[in-house]
Simulated assay, not measured.
Amino acid sequence: MPFALFCNDAKLSKAYPTEADVWKVAQNSGLVVDVVSEKQKAAPRPVLDNDYEIRPCQPEPHEDPAKNKADAERDARLEPPLGS
Rank of each mutant, 00 (worst) to 15 (best):
E73D: 12
A72P: 05
Y16R: 04
T18C: 03
R74W: 02
D49L: 15
S29Y: 01
K69P: 01
A4T: 07
K14G: 10
P46Q: 08
A26K: 09
P61N: 08
P80M: 04
D9V: 06
L48P: 03
A43P: 00
C57L: 01
A66M: 05
D71L: 01
L48Y: 01
E53C: 13
S37P: 06
K11F: 03
N28C: 11
R77T: 03
P65W: 01
I54D: 03
E19D: 11
L78C: 06
E63C: 00
P17H: 06
D75H: 11
F3G: 04
A20S: 13
D21H: 11
A70E: 02
G83V: 01
E38A: 14
M1E: 14
L48F: 06
K24G: 10
R74L: 07
K39W: 00
F6S: 09
A72N: 04
T18N: 07
D71H: 01
Q27S: 14
W23L: 05
A76R: 05
A66Y: 00
D49R: 15
E19K: 13
A70P: 05
L12Q: 14
K14Y: 12
M1A: 15
Y16L: 10
F6H: 09
S29R: 05
Q27I: 10
A76F: 03
A20V: 08
D51A: 10
S37Q: 12
H62V: 04
E63F: 04
L5G: 11
S29E: 09
S29C: 08
M1R: 15
G30K: 07
E63Y: 01
C57T: 04
C57P: 02
D49N: 15
G30P: 06
K24Q: 15
G30Q: 08
S37N: 10
L31V: 02
G30H: 07
R74F: 02
Y16N: 06
V36I: 08
E60N: 11
V47P: 07
D51N: 12
V47H: 11
S37K: 11
R55T: 00
C7Y: 14
V47C: 12
